[in-house]
Design a binder for these strands. Sequence first.
DNA 1: GAATAGATTGTCT
DNA 2: GACAATCTATTCT
Length: 206
Amino acid sequence: MNRVSLASSFTPLARSFYARPVLEVARAMVGKLLVHATSGGPLVGRIVEVEAYRGPEDLASHSSKGRRTARNEAMYGEAGRAYVYLLYGSSWAFNVVTGEEGQAHAVLVRAIEPVAGLDVMSARRGMKVTDRALCNGPGKLCKAMDIDRRFYGVDLCAPPLFLAEGRRGKLGRSHRINIDYAGAWIEKPWRFYERGNRWVSVRPRD
DNA sequence: GAATAGATTGTCT
DNA sequence: GACAATCTATTCT
């Protein structure tokens, strides 16, 4: 199969997939494929770890307490669009907006299992394709998949960036990672991952 | 594998 | 001016 037919063999998930409660979408996203059709061929990763963020009550969310700024504006938009932001100065994070418009809920993709375009990902990350650190973190997968602020607010229901159907194994869930500032919300089991998958970023506490 | 320290910069107070 | 939904290198066991 050549590169062109490989890219066209993936079909974007419809907006109805995203227009549901955020925890439902987060759970369903584990096992789906993240596809970026680039001029150099498709970059594809199987999603193995995500986290749900549900403002305004969720203190870990950028939209907590109804906060609405230039940065998180995309969270308030229609379901199925991307919310991309820079954190800690040098890493990009990729989120999918869910629920109803005006509702600032989103799902952060924390880790993927590389599926296609491995040579490109490997070169972009400066490490071997077999290295567990290739895509096991929000910033790492964005670097490997060539996702940055160019994709802020873009529609994920059509190429070049979209989710496609995939298969998944056993679902696991745990507390979210690195939200020490969020008080009692630290304990919410809003991280979903595939059990036993070596590409999951942080080993579950439980 | 686990723990630690330093890097780095847009965004918000 | 402080912080952040992190990463990397380094230094242990």
